[in-house]
Amino acid sequence: MTRSPLHDLHVRLGARFVDFGGWEMPVQYESVLEEHRAVRQGVGVFDVSHLGRLEVTGPNSTEILRNLFTNDVAKYEPGRTHYTMLLNDDGGIVDDIVVWRWDEDHYWVMPNAANADRVRATLEDRGAHVVDLRPSTCLLAVQGPAAPRLIEETFGQAPARFRTLEVDGVRMAGTGYTGERGGEVCLPIEAAGPVLEELLEAGAVPCGLGARDTLRLEAGLALWGSDIDETTTPLEAGLDFAVDWDHDFPGKTALECQRQTGPSRRLTGLVMEGRGIPRHGYAVRSGSSVGEVTSGNISPARDTGIALAYLSPPVAVGEPAEVEIRGRWVPARVASPPFHR
């Protein structure tokens, strides 16, 4: 199991840890719900050093990434970030990825922790020059309505939404996984501890992967390994906003085929109308449609259970549904995330 370079600091802060993608990372400090609320109302900071950070350089970088990912990197000029996917030949999602473009042929490719080695191997197979930044850096996610100001106070400037920014060797972007403003900040390992302590001193609440999960679920953001994987396609998961049909990529033929007929199932938001928390694997029904919860938890904003579930055939927003919670069918309603606004 790999540990964050900030592990000892997390221990001192009272963190509990969880295995995530082969990394032992903080899951919570004091309370998942308090950390969740801190990010919705103020600012929280997450150590997300487990996330993949692959630096891709070289004169053929743009062509290689363009031919590999669903989104067209060439359409996002330097200084912008975008969401994209790597698919298998069946159109299944091998990984969902955020790309930070620094220059014409200078990218950071950010895969999920568990998929970083596989994405790296795929890039190298295509001839890309790849450097794994994880051994030399930490990544902190500073998230919440007060996050842009805190980033600006700490680093002198803050990145705009979906834009990259470099200040004195610190590289950051206006990205995240919580549905809030803020950014992700990449720091040399030796600088990361003092910066994290400075952020906490300035009022940021240390947050773990527990709150990160309730925040992303409330925002309706899919989690690879739970809501999406190699057996689900971008069309089924509602991620086709990140598919550019005007260029070629692995899985495009299968995906076009599914686009013609329409996917037989769709990843759907559910809000519970009865008591109980829907959890991964619970059965769902709505009219003649059936399916399964892929992610579920409490929505602190609504104080009720929420879920993402595949329903086959797809069901319209507003329709009634039921989730089987340990033998009881509990009423729910099909809803369109985000759930917290």
């Binding site: 309370s31 008591r275 928390i277 409490i298």
Partner: peptide
Amino acid sequence: LGDVVYVE
């Protein structure tokens, strides 16, 4: 258990 959100 962590944060308790429902008791039946």
